[in-house]
């Protein structure tokens, strides 16, 4: 393989990894605070791409307002899902919560089929993102640069919030001990809502960039990325933000490189994530950056 080709695959892998990372963070944040695997997360991601599609297609709004609105709508959806499906089960056994999230996932998927239709839609890409840069003889779409840059900026903001602000401190406190957090006059429900808002916002940013990179939208498009990003979160060590990012990049790069180096195996592209999951669960069940937890689902 020529170096030029390799570079193209590398850039491609990094941008796919960035998208996975954004989605994986949502799983890890919610798991950290509720000990819940939020199966509806992939579908929230799907809704963001459709929201972007419809707002863009209306052709009244400038692209950036359309994207911003789509992100805000997705964020609100995430908060509503928590309020409707998870909050009433706050004191219920965790398995009920898990089942509720599976139900929520099916509900959103099927509503999407009803309202958006099952036929694929094409995401309209604003012209500014639809260019190709040529460096020497390497041709790279601008998107492949923009995606990792936006991801890094968002990550920096998120880590700043979690580690340097009072709300972030409260998030970390709630994720270790609800009751002790309540004794500090922390409104636990508010912190959980905030966590869902952050997770859904990141999923929406990822979703819109996903729509531009892979512009064919279908109502079940969130399922596979959802499962893969859950795997990414587990590989990195669920509950750990940096771990989720690491897992996302390993998965994204791994998938692209597998196809690049072994084109015969390209049909097994999706299987890569699951093989990686099995391998990690055997070798280091708590994930690459995870701590030893007493119990897991």
């Amino acid at each position: 393989m020529e170096i030029k080709e390799f570079l193209q695959h590398l850039v491609n892998g990094i941008s796919l990894g960035s998208l996975y990372a954004l989605l994986a963070i949502g799983y890890t944040l919610v798991y950290g605070i509720l000990r819940l695997i939020n199966f509806a997360h992939g579908d929230i991601f799907m809704i963001s791409t459709y929201a972007g599609f419809y707002l863009m297609s209306s052709a009244i709004l400038p692209w950036w307002i359309a994207f911003l609105l789509a992100i805000i709508l997705t964020c609100i959806l995430g908060i509503l899902v928590e309020k409707a499906a998870y909050r009433p089960l706050r004191d219920a056994p965790r398995i009920s919560l898990l089942i509720s999230s599976i139900g929520m996932s099916y509900l959103i998927e099927n509503l999407a089929i009803v309202f958006f239709g099952g036929r694929p839609k094409t995401f309209p890409i604003p012209a500014i993102f639809d260019r190709i840069i040529t460096i020497g003889s390497v041709k790279i779409p601008t998107l492949s640069f923009i995606i990792p840059v936006i991801t890094i900026i968002i990550l920096a903001i998120l880590l700043h919030i979690v580690h340097n602000t009072k709300t972030g401190m409260a998030m970390r406190a709630v994720s270790t001990d609800y009751e002790a957090a309540r004794l500090m006059a922390i409104d636990v429900n508010k912190i959980i809502t905030f966590t869902f808002a952050v997770g859904s916002t990141l999923a929406a940013v990822g979703g819109i960039m996903w729509g531009m990179k892979y512009p064919s939208l279908i109502p079940l498009m969130g399922v596979m990325p959802g499962i893969k990003c859950f795997i990414a979160a587990v590989v990195g060590g669920i509950g750990n933000i940096r771990g989720a990012v690491l897992g996302g990049f390993i998965l994204g790069l791994g998938e692209i490189m597998l196809v690049a180096f072994m084109p015969a195996l390209s049909g097994y592209r999706d299987a890569f994530a699951f093989i990686l999951l099995i391998f990690i669960l055997l070798a280091k069940p708590t994930g690459l950056m995870g701590k030893n937890l007493a119990e897991k689902v």
Binding site: A170, R172, A173, T176, D177, E179, A180, L183, M184
Partner: peptide
Amino acid sequence: LVPEGRRIFPDLTVVENLTLGAYW
């Protein structure tokens, strides 16, 4: 209330624990 079993936040630093006390 100082709860039974201390219930401090183990992953947070001493200062962060104290700062959370003054959360409100």
